Amino acid sequence: MSPSRPLVFAHRGGAEALPEHTLAAYVRALDEGADGVECDVRLTRDGHLVCVHDRRLNRTSNGTGLVSAKTLAELDALDYASWHPAAATEDLPVEHTRLLTLERLLDALRDRGLGVRLLIETKHPSRYGADVERRLVEMLRRYGLAEPVPDDPVRVTVMSFAALALRRIRTLAPGIPTVYLLEIPPPGVRRGRLPFGAKIAGPSIGLIRARPNLVESLRAAGHGAYVWTVNREEDVNLVLAQRVDGIITDRPGFVIDRLEKLPPV
């Protein structure tokens, strides 16, 4: 893929083909050629960072209740794969479909040794508030990833819809790039301004459709744009026309195939 092409990130590991936030999904996405992957993190009751999108367990496991009210051991006892159609057709190793902690994901990505990009979204509101970012930065420091260098085996960027979360990251680890996620733009963003030192905007594909000049305004202000969640061919075409920097998708293989069919630039 040409360097001028946008980066392709597997949303929740590539949530269409395999159960989201499972190691199986992340491995598949990287094997398909994704430049990076995206995950959401939440804190458990006993202070562990786990990769689960929803506040509640009901949709993507056989458990119920709040993620934040469970211990790591309680969460690890649940089934995170059988809800997905792929569970009936693919022979997925149990080790690749159990609860995914951020630590296990970092280990798996580091072991690949390919300079994988990892987008980590901190989920808010959370009963643990600033502890989410503090625990995250502590873990990244343990892995030597809080002060990025070009040859890191994993290159981390932190994302959030919460501007205060990005401010905490900037204070705790100013070298980590941040993405300000957008679904409804606050005042100033339409003129290209982002809060608290964020250099990359993360608008939804719906917002791009509604405000076709947004990416141009961001670019004029010196900001990049990673767009989510881009799954349809017409949306791939739209963001390519907008010359975005990153495409976050549930279908990384599909998007990569579309990009590879483009004429050289």
Rank of each mutant, 00 (worst) to 15 (best):
D79Y: 06
A77G: 05
L105P: 01
S82F: 01
I169L: 05
V52K: 00
R55F: 02
V265I: 03
L92T: 10
D107F: 09
L114H: 15
G36Q: 03
V94K: 15
D76T: 08
R211N: 12
D79E: 10
N213P: 13
T122Q: 09
V227W: 01
G175S: 00
G13I: 07
G144F: 02
V158K: 00
A220L: 11
L164W: 06
L105S: 03
E103G: 12
N213G: 15
D46E: 09
L109I: 11
E147M: 03
A198V: 07
Y226L: 11
K70D: 05
L78R: 05
V158F: 00
R251E: 04
A210Q: 14
Y26P: 07
P263L: 14
L114C: 13
R104G: 06
I184K: 15
F254T: 08
P3G: 10
G192V: 12
E234R: 15
R168T: 11
P263Y: 13
K199N: 14
G33M: 02
V67D: 05
G188Q: 09
D235Q: 05
P187A: 08
S82H: 10
V8D: 05
G47T: 03
R258C: 03
A221I: 04
V230M: 10
K261E: 15
N58L: 10
D245Y: 04
R167E: 14
L240V: 02
H11R: 12
P153V: 11
L105C: 00
N58S: 09
A81W: 03
A210I: 01
A88F: 06
E234D: 15
L136S: 09
P150R: 11
T89R: 13
D107T: 06
P185A: 07
R55Q: 09
A165I: 00
G113V: 02
V52R: 09
T64S: 13
D152T: 06
D76S: 14
L106S: 04
E260W: 04
L57H: 07
V239Q: 07
P203V: 13
C51Q: 01
P186G: 10
A15D: 12
E38I: 04
R219D: 00
G33N: 09
A88Y: 00
K123S: 00
S82N: 12
L194R: 01
D151Y: 10
I200K: 03
G144D: 08
E147R: 04
A241E: 14
L214H: 04
N58H: 15
V154K: 02
Y143A: 04
V230R: 03
A146C: 00
R251K: 15
A24Y: 03
A130V: 10
H21M: 07
Y26D: 08
G246I: 00
